[in-house]
Design a protein around this nucleic acid. Structure first.
Lengths: 105, 105
DNA sequence: CTTATATATAAGAAAATTATTATATAGATG
DNA sequence: CATCTATATAATAATTTTCTTATATATAAG
């Protein structure tokens, strides 16, 4: 089987299969913001928001973006935006993910 | 927000975000089979396979198909195949899932 | 009549995910 | 100097998901 590919797919699906993380992507899609602001907007305690965003970052679904608005010497104001991903899943794609390499289609 | 739509999406993603269930779809995509055979093929205890297949059926990702091969008076040999679904997910789609109906794009 | 096939489901255990609480640091505001 | 913004992370608690064990039923094969 195509271990890595199918495992990566499961990880990506798990990262997306959560209402909080989807809301985060939706909110950052409206306009990029920092984690503190995102947590407030979604009424989440900061550490929880931190954990969820961390999961999205690790999966490459959210990226840090350089916002020009950094006013003064604000030290660590990081802005995030959704990565430009596209997930497509059909029975046929799933079948291919679990096919052994040798079998020719 | 579009409660139902986003909630349904999370449910579908959760149903797919599992290696066993993806393998089931992959196997049933090769050729439809009954649950007993599927469990054996994937080396899963029947009750576990039953639970996973149940989840897929409830999400409409797997359907019961009438196989003509039912030989004799075999009473309850049910064959399953993947439903013809297509899941597509992008940041823009996620954004729309969580948009309030009023906002025009 | 025992074994294999075949389905169904409950109940509990184990593991993973999600959420909370606590702690630490640091600059800016008032 | 206390409060607000802002980030980071550890440790634990709560919840959900996953897995196992047990039970029940029924047909077919040997």
């Amino acid at each position: 089987m195509n271990e890595t590919q199918s495992q990566e797919m499961v990880k990506t699906l798990k990262a997306l299969a959560n209402p909080v993380r989807l809301k985060m992507i939706a909110s950052l899609g409206e306009n990029p913001k920092n984690l503190y602001a995102l947590a407030k907007e979604l009424s989440l305690p900061y550490p929880l928001a931190y954990l969820h965003l961390d999961g999205l970052k690790k999966r490459g679904l959210v990226k840090e973006v350089r916002e020009e608005k950094k006013v003064e010497g604000l030290p660590s104001v990081k802005y995030y935006a959704p990565a430009d991903f596209k997930l497509v899943l059909t029975p046929s794609i799933i079948k291919k993910l679990f096919q052994t390499k040798k079998e020719a289609s």
